[in-house]
Design a protein around this nucleic acid. Structure first.
Length: 210
DNA sequence: TAGTGGCT
DNA sequence: TCAC
């Protein structure tokens, strides 16, 4: 059963959108925990496999595993920060709780990707498919400035729908939507006061290992 | 192919 | 959308 969005386009089955899931207080507390993660595991600029073209987002991770990409070894999960070689810091409890509440998946997430978007950062249309546990949903939590998010289907050429993700929104990609192409077309500067210097933070919770 | 410049 |  797909969710009707009133635009003639429905979310794929298994996609759940929770606008304003987190209160402002919860967002502030979560942001503080993200700052601790970034203090332990600094943001860095990932690059595309093969070409070495930098992505426009800055990235870090928390949890037993982190998603990384580089010129020589491509997309993968690994247990250490690619620059410092230190183990990733733990996933904050509040994020584990969100995962439990919105998924009900029997195992906790073992990876949390932290993406920081400045006002000119983008994320091209892609699928999350580097995980073994493809039956586990992917959970996205937005903090800071609003972005224009694009969601399609399992094939790159499936039609897409764009909608905004604002601070405190939670999006779950499960079921048919687990392998849906998605990306971030733009960030709207000045749309949130949560981050003093602006920008958007996206936290993506995933179960990688079975 | 999680990016992007250039051409129709 | 294509082609790199």
């Amino acid at each position: 059963m797909a969710t009707n969005t009133g635009t003639g386009w429905s979310f794929p089955e298994g996609v759940k959108f929770y606008p304003e899931y987190l209160t402002r207080e919860h967002q502030r507390a979560l942001l503080e925990e993200v700052r601790e993660v970034v203090a332990a595991a600094p943001l860095y600029v990932p690059v595309m496999p093969g070409t070495g073209t930098p992505l426009s987002v800055r990235m870090t991770n928390c949890g037993p595993l982190g998603w990384v990409t580089d010129k020589d070894h491509g997309y993968r999960y690994q247990s250490v920060h690619p620059v410092t070689q230190a183990a990733w810091p733990p996933i904050p409890d509040s994020l584990i709780h969100i995962w439990e509440q919105v998924t009900g998946y029997p195992k906790p997430p073992d990876a949390c990707l932290v993406n920081f978007y400045t006002e000119d950062a983008r994320m091209g249309l892609h699928q999350d498919k580097d995980e073994q546990a493809l039956e586990a949903p992917v959970v996205s939590v937005s903090l800071g400035d609003t972005c224009l998010f694009r969601l399609g289907g399992r094939r790159r050429d499936d039609r897409t729908r764009s909608f905004r993700l604002a601070s405190g929104d939670v999006l779950v990609l499960g079921g048919e939507g687990r392998l849906a192409f998605h990306g971030v077309d733009r960030v709207y500067p000045g749309t949130s006061t949560l981050l003093k210097n602006g920008g958007r933070i996206n936290l993506t919770l995933r179960r990688v290992n079975l």
